[in-house]
């Protein structure tokens, strides 16, 4: 990395300034780390850097990606949502239950699953805003509660036997690209625009930086918070639907532990856990980096236990590199 920078500096100062400009952003540093990792992994196996493999990885990371987007919003406001994995399970169960047990048409059942997800998220938001419960505590409690509801409703039964069209989303491609990946891309674009180009998005940064000041400047803090938690619940519900469509069955333990995967993508993407900074671009790079690392290591013959050691180290190291680089640049 260092040699590349110096050579660039010699050949073209303007280009160097551009590179430096990119480096000034957390996303730029992370992007460089990602590119280096990809290049290293590509030298280990020729199966890694192929269109087919990369698209397949897109399919596999969609569910976590869908959850990581609203998680970015929430963490930017200084909050956190630990209940997302449980909402995935609850929505998945509701999908199967309302179709199989309550006899709704499957389309309606999907809508119910998404609605339940949004409702569960909105309840998180209401508990957080109306009762002023810290988000970590509120969603820690609903993590247990929503999972419990899923178990109670499911009564340990899985629902299978969906009609063929139901699997279009999770198991088929359009124009060679996995169907769910379109939704992830649309989600990324909408979330990015929402966050960086609208008043609503800017209000989230304001809340994260100083909630009291945001309140005084007339931002509807509570309403916006409830909205993003509801959005988080909705996207978790959608992720649940995508997962059910991909694996063709519903189980009450679906999505367990996903909250940590989503949070890892967000914080790796440079969103500060204390709120106020962060971007959808960063989260997307973080998500891609983790997925490609897992995949590339597996393809190079690294086993699962060693892979999670690498992922954990990368999480700490890349955050460290970013902090050091930012500090240096600001110092210059």
């Amino acid at each position: 990395m260092a040699t590349r920078e110096t050579s660039l500096k010699k050949s073209s100062p303007a280009l160097f300034q551009q590179v430096q400009g990119v480096l000034r952003t957390q996303e730029g540093v992370l992007l460089i780390i990602t590119i280096i990792s990809v290049l290293i992994l590509a030298t280990q196996t020729d199966k890694f850097l192929t269109v087919k493999n990369l698209l397949n990885q897109g399919r596999l990371m969609t569910e976590i990606g869908l959850i990581a987007l609203p998680m970015t919003f929430i963490i930017i406001t200084g909050g956190i949502d630990l209940s997302v994995g449980s909402i995935v399970g609850l929505s998945a169960i509701m999908l199967g239950y309302s179709w199989h047990n309550l006899g709704f048409p499957l389309e309606v059942a999907i809508a119910i699953a998404l609605g339940i997800g949004a409702l569960a998220g909105a309840i998180n938001g209401l508990i957080i805003t109306r009762f002023r419960v810290p988000p970590l505590i509120a969603t820690l409690a609903t993590l247990a509660f929503y999972r419990g509801l899923a178990e109670g409703i499911a009564q340990a039964r899985s629902v299978t036997g969906y009609p063929a069209w139901f699997f279009d989303l999770g198991q088929r491609e359009t124009l060679g690209i996995p169907n769910q990946l379109y939704f992830l891309v649309i989600g990324i674009v909408i979330s990015a625009i929402l966050l960086s180009r609208t008043t609503f998005g800017r209000s989230l940064y304001a809340i994260g930086n100083n909630e009291l000041a945001a309140r005084f400047s007339g931002i509807p803090v509570n309403r916006n918070k409830v909205l993003i938690y509801a959005f988080s619940g909705f996207m978790s519900g959608f992720a649940g639907y995508v997962l059910v469509s991909r694996v063709s069955t519903t189980r009450s333990d679906m999505g367990s532990g996903w909250e940590l995967d989503a949070i890892a993508a967000v914080v790796l993407g440079g969103t500060s856990i204390t709120g106020g900074t962060g971007s959808i671009l960063g989260t997307t790079i973080g998500l891609v980096l983790i997925q490609l690392l897992k995949n590339g290591l597996a393809l190079s013959g690294v086993t699962g236990d060693a892979t999670i050691v690498v992922i954990g180290s990368v999480l700490i190291l890349s955050t460290l590199i970013n902090i050091v680089v930012q500090r240096r640049l600001r110092g210059v």
């Binding site: 199966k47 997962l243 995949n295 597996a298 393809l299 013959g301 699962g304």
Partner: peptide, 13 residues
């Protein structure tokens, strides 16, 4: 879902 990812990776490999 993780088990599925593992198998998928080995198919690619």
């Amino acid at each position: 879902d993780e088990q599925i990812t593992f198998i998928d990776n080995y198919i690619t490999r």
